[in-house]
């Protein structure tokens, strides 16, 4: 009897291949029938901008921006809404939806019978989520422009920054999903995502916290994205932004590394 032969993941954190692009093709076919679904995704952050930024913002005067300068609440919260939308989109796609597709959706079982590997599927789906996220980010920027919230050319970089946030959370979400066995396990993801969404300097400055707590918040992942995109939106460029970028990039790479080591074992039963 020979030793059990397991699929060997390629060395390093590389997984997926050019074949991943075919998953994106499939999604384009699907959305050819239902492009309204994609369009409707633009509305959620828009509603939040109107409701929280302008509605709730009317109760709030100015607020301190990234460099300590007073800015309108709309300008403060809009970049954060862009960031959280990027995070939520990527997390939904890489956790619930990915788990559902691979465990319950027969379509993905049929794709596994082709030369595409689970890694290809993971990367393709993540890529599609990012493409969609990029479209939403562009749409959101246009809305910000309409409301007079574009105040610096640096804001253009908020779109790739939103993609970076999506990549970081999508990759980690996928890594987390590779450890999930039942739907119940996804409570844990909510347990992490909701506090991040509420407390990462999204709706009010982290100055509101006592110093020790503030430092902890400043080390959490969503804060990196919020501060990065907000700084770009107000043109407060500083070296700390490079730290944010490096943090998010490393987080994404680490997520992919874990995913690539686990995904085949997990899906090829």
């Amino acid at each position: 009897m020979t030793a059990p032969t397991l699929r060997v993941a390629p060395a390093g954190f590389g997984f997926g291949s050019r074949r991943s692009a075919r998953l994106i093709e499939r999604n384009l076919y699907v959305y050819k029938h239902g492009w309204l679904v994609i369009l409707s995704g633009f509305f959620e952050p828009l509603f939040y901008l109107l409701g929280i930024g302008f509605g709730l913002g009317s109760l709030i005067g100015t607020i301190n921006g990234p460099a300590g300068q007073p800015i309108s609440y709309q300008l403060f919260v809009a970049p954060a809404l862009l960031t959280t939308a990027a995070m939520n989109g990527a997390i939904n796609e890489s956790t619930f939806n990915f788990f559902f597709k691979l465990n319950y959706n027969k379509t993905f079982a049929s794709i596994l019978a082709t030369p595409l590997s689970p890694g290809d599927i993971a990367l393709g789906e993540l890529g599609w989520a990012l493409i969609r996220g990029g479209l939403y980010a562009l749409g959101f920027m246009a809305v910000m422009g309409l409301f007079g919230l574009v105040v610096t050319p640096w804001v253009v970089l908020a779109v790739p920054a939103a993609l970076l946030v999506g990549f970081a959370f999508g990759a980690v979400g996928m890594a987390a999903t590779s450890f999930m066995t039942t739907w119940q396990d996804f409570d844990l993801i909510q347990l992490v995502v909701l506090p991040l969404f509420l407390f990462s300097g999204t709706f009010y400055p982290v100055d509101a916290y006592p110093d020790a707590l503030r430092v902890i918040v400043q080390l959490t992942p969503l804060y990196q994205g919020v501060d990065l995109i907000r700084s770009l939106a107000v043109g407060a460029i500083s070296p700390i932004l490079l730290f944010h970028v490096a943090y998010l990039a490393l987080m994404g790479i680490a997520g992919l590394a874990v995913t690539s080591r686990r995904i085949d074992l997990l899906l090829l039963k």
């Binding site: 074949r19 075919r22 093709e25 499939r26 076919y29 699907v30 029938h33 027969k106 379509t107 079982a109 049929s110 794709i111 019978a113 082709t114 030369p115 595409l116």
Partner: peptide, 28 residues
């Protein structure tokens, strides 16, 4: 290899012809 699984695993979000076309794309 071609595979016909026990349960049909067709892509319900696509048409009959698109099912064939996208599957061909998976094979490059």
């Amino acid at each position: 290899v071609g595979v016909v699984p026990q349960q049909d695993t067709l892509d319900n979000e696509l048409t009959v012809r698109e099912n064939l076309v996208i599957y061909g794309r998976y094979f490059g």
